[in-house]
């Protein structure tokens, strides 16, 4: 378990809280960094009914078995990463929530062929919203982000953004996206996003 006082975002040095605004903005793109998410990686066989049921019981969420989809519930999201791999994400949670979440899953999956791994502070969550959010992502991401292909809220994908590996989750049709990126790439990606969004007008907002 990670002590609360050690949990520090990889973007702390940018002092985003100091120059972010809470006021509504007309900017084409709104950027923010969400507080460090609690993340637990889950492996198992989605063809095994016992595994699917155990996950549903532990998390209260259906396991997304369709590629590139996520299911979301009360402060919790379950992202499809591969045919036998998922990522459980919890926002606005205390540091000990990760251990709780992992323990809950491990108990539920006891005796099944499955693996539960805490991700610690490895991922940063950047939020990108606004009318031009898609245009910004399209500058550095090979995915087809048109609503016809990237099917709206609850769609997720792992890909590259400006050559950094990211997990992209659409959280609203507005559109709004969450970008999960490894912490060593967070500073680079934040600066890239600010630069790429400049032409549309960019506002740093409170998460």
């Amino acid at each position: 378990m990670i002590e609360t006082y050690l949990r520090q975002s990889a973007l702390d040095h940018l002092g985003l809280a100091g120059h972010s605004t809470a006021a509504p903005t007309e900017a084409g793109v709104q950027l923010s960094e969400k507080p460090l998410p609690v993340a637990v990686n889950l492996r198992g066989d989605s063809g095994d009914a016992a595994f699917v049921e155990a996950v549903r019981e532990a998390l209260g969420l259906a396991l997304p078995t369709l590629p590139n989809t996520a299911t979301t519930g009360e402060g919790l999201a379950l992202l499809w990463l591969g045919p036998d791999e998922w990522l459980a994400m919890q926002h606005d949670a205390a540091a000990f929530a990760e251990a709780q979440l992992a323990t809950k899953l491990r108990k539920a999956l006891d005796g099944l062929h499955a693996a539960v791994t805490e991700m610690g502070e490895s991922l940063c969550c950047l939020s990108l919203a606004g009318a031009q959010a898609r245009a910004v992502l399209a500058k550095g991401c090979p995915l087809d982000l048109h609503p016809r292909a990237f099917g709206g809220s609850g769609h997720c994908a792992q890909s590259l953004l400006a050559k950094a590996a990211v997990t992209l989750l659409q959280v609203s049709d507005a559109p709004a996206f969450e970008l999960y990126v490894r912490r060593s790439f967070a500073d680079y990606l934040w600066r890239w996003l600010e630069d790429a969004a400049r032409e549309y007008g960019v506002a740093v907002v409170r998460p």
Partner: peptide, 17 residues
Amino acid sequence: MLLIACPHCGPRAESEF
């Protein structure tokens, strides 16, 4: 750029592979 159909994720750009 090639478009490669990943058997799990669907068609994706070559740079992801």
